[in-house]
Design a protein around this nucleic acid. Structure first.
Lengths: 162, 162
DNA sequence: TTGCAATTACTGCAATGTCAATTACTTCTG
DNA sequence: CAGAAGTAATTGACATTGCAGTAATTGCAA
């Protein structure tokens, strides 16, 4: 049963909130400057590149992304317009659509990845020792453990793209 | 010096990213449903309510919020339009503006606060033990320690409004 | 099997937030 | 003290995203 919210937990939440906000802003700025790529595009591309056959249904993408369904639709439109992904109708469900990463998309991810990891280190990892990082990993995992959509979609997102 | 990004740190970052996304979405949904208040409004109001005299300059608010300067301006417009805050010209710098919480604003915060803390417990705290919470607090504090704007603006945001 | 509810993806519209430019004022420099 | 440079806040133009509604398809229930 959920007990009362204590001060430490509240501080922890505010810490997550602000860390997210500050770090994300910097990661996005770096990526835009270095590669002219919005971080939302990167997120979708890296997800796709790590899925079997480089493809995912729209609703699966919704589950693992930070967007709503319609947000994913628009994002897909933009990525498709510049040839980084393409849509394919699903054979098994005619309502469905697969979003598939193209060769250009894979090339883009490969190009961006090293700089992105460097940014994460620079704006985030740099300040943490091994114990901090492990604690963060473990604690956030407990929270996401209870997220249905996230659990269903769990495919490891944290290894470099192939 | 920044060394290489290791796997654990990368997982930690993704954990923060997704925890933020999932939890925030739920907190916002709760607040909108229970009190018809966007969480961005709540953030501004709670900041103001905890500042001396319930007032903050626009750029101070920018420092502690998740928005850019112009974003804060627009948010202030909306809050002012419904009477939750008001603007006052700064006597010491005639370019400056204070955003001041009104009685209605304080009433709103007082009304929302208990449900909001309950939401944080429900979507976040519930899943953490005391050690997890403390680790999260400490690790995120290290990151924010290095954020100039955040350090300058450091006023404890984590106690209930008066 | 037929009809109803649920699901998939998309679209129009409105809200929100950013960027770059602008106005007003202050501070620094010589 | 004059002028240049910097700072505070706002605004217009624009991009992005969510919400609510829609069309097509599937699956379930009687």
């Amino acid at each position: 049963m959920p007990n009362e919210l204590d001060q430490t937990t509240l501080d922890a939440w505010r810490g997550v909130l602000f860390s997210y906000a500050r770090v994300t802003r910097r990661l996005e700025a770096d990526m835009l400057e270095q590669h002219d790529l919005p971080i939302t595009w990167f997120d979708v591309l890296s997800r796709l590149s790590q899925s079997p056959d480089g493809r995912l249904r729209m609703h699966e993408l919704e589950g693992v992304s930070l967007f709503t369904r319609s947000g994913v639709t628009r994002l897909a439109d933009r990525l498709e317009a510049v040839g980084l992904v393409r849509r394919e109708r699903s054979p098994e469900d005619r309502r469905g659509v697969y979003l598939v990463i193209t060769a250009a998309g894979r090339a883009k991810i490969a190009e961006v990845w090293p700089d992105h990891t460097a940014s994460i280190q620079k704006h985030f990892g740099q300040y943490l020792d091994a114990g901090d990082a492990e604690s963060l990993r473990a604690a956030t995992a407990k929270i996401l453990e209870h997220d249905e959509a996230f659990r269903r979609a769990r495919g490891d997102d944290s290894s470099p793209p192939r």
